[in-house]
Design a protein around this nucleic acid. Structure first.
Lengths: 229, 229
DNA sequence: TCCACTTAGTGTAGAATAAACACTAACAGG
DNA sequence: CCTGTTAGTGTTTATTCTACACTAAGTGGA
């Protein structure tokens, strides 16, 4: 079966930049292409948008199919429509970026016959198409977003220590932060819930565990209160 | 001539939210639909992306064709891909927002047989498709962007007074600002070039004219210095 | 010519926020 | 019990933000 239109139509795809925190590094999930253009090169997971699914659905489906990743924070990044970004034909791609808890997805690569792997954001291979540019934009967006939205928690396990959280900010923002100032600021936002639990299996004093208080954050948003770090 | 594909493809369009400052109000440029769905309703200017033009080129072309607007600041906003956002068929639209100097485009409506007009952002008619949602997102984006990028100047004539600039910020941010604090802050950013000219034809003390110093701003960006108001 | 009206243009003090900085406490392991 | 490692905590200073009111300059009309 084929589909016919009066005018030529660009192909429409989605591509995803999936970030995961593999302390002490921020990593990105890439797949190795097994098809014609850029065969063997690494690329962002992604694929065609079906005519009966939303863009976000397409992104989630492709991620599941190609990498097995399922529970994730997903947000649209930008749409890339340069005429020659794909050598075969006109392809417009809606890029998304995603944050996953690596604690849940450590063995992603095994899920599919597809060759998938995590790469440090500062240690990337050559990428197919304009994916390097997309990845770069996603990383910058993540850096900005982190400062005024509480999305870092999407990269950590449900329960975490303040030290883990600070390291996350340091790794993503690519600079060191003052411990006391960081703790004061993050606690003052009120989005952290102190738990009655402590870290275990560490060879030093155990730190208290916290979790992200999503309910409280949504309340803040309703009341027009801004998160900022 | 027709075009045939192995799988069905969504149609791809661009839509533009064009802002203009018509003191003392922020206005948006809309066109009245003369075609089937939502006929007679107002809608954002836009149309199909040709297979040999970039998304931004498509946006500029549609604006020129439908409204005659040409010199403008244009930036991608978001891509809307809900399955049923167009009752006829699957249409994915890449939304842009634009800022124009109304001083240059006051008589836009006359440019085309098409019915086009400016509407106050707080006094909009019912819009076709999901355009109300797009417009809303564009307005919020503009409000945010205004605070950390010097884009307000795109809405003013080349030479303007501090009062005009302050009113622009007030109109877009929808709150009053303190005159002295505003002047201090905006002047301290260094992006304004003081001219040796004064306002004319006003029934009161004439104010000094300024212009946006683009060169200086680009230098700031290179040096990593942030604009913020 | 002077009076009324309108907007231009300017500084300061107090409050809030951000930045810099160092030590003791707790725990594990040898 | 000693060593090593991280947890956890306050204060001072600098910077930034906020609130606030008067004089100067020009037009237009009485």
């Amino acid at each position: 079966m084929t589909w016919t239109y009066e005018f030529p139509r660009p192909a429409l795809t989605v591509d995803c930049v999936v970030f995961g925190l593999d302390e002490p590094e921020l990593k990105v999930l890439l797949i190795r292409r097994d098809l014609k253009p850029f065969r063997g090169k690494w690329a962002l997971p992604g694929g065609f948008v079906h005519v009966d699914e939303t863009l976000e659905d397409a992104a989630r489906r492709e991620l599941r199919e190609e990498t097995g990743v399922e529970q994730l924070y997903l947000e649209q990044l930008y749409t890339y429509g340069d005429v020659d970004r794909d050598p075969r034909e006109r392809v417009v791609t809606v890029a998304y970026y995603a944050l996953v808890k690596l604690s849940d997805h450590r063995v992603v690569a095994a899920t599919d016959a597809r060759d998938a792997d995590w790469f440090g954001v500062h240690d990337l291979p050559q990428l197919a198409f304009d994916h390097a540019r997309i990845l770069d934009a996603a990383y910058h967006r993540l850096q900005n977003k982190l400062r005024y939205e509480p999305i870092g928690f999407e990269l950590l396990p449900k329960k975490f220590t303040l030290r883990q959280l600070q390291r996350l900010y340091e790794v993503i923002l690519d600079r060191t932060l003052d411990k006391r100032n960081f703790r004061k600021k993050i606690l003052s936002t009120g989005v952290l819930q102190e738990l009655d639990e402590m870290e275990t299996n560490v060879a030093h004093r155990a730190a208290r565990l916290y979790r992200f208080n999503q309910k409280h954050y949504r309340d803040m948003v309703k009341r027009g209160i801004h998160f900022e770090i």
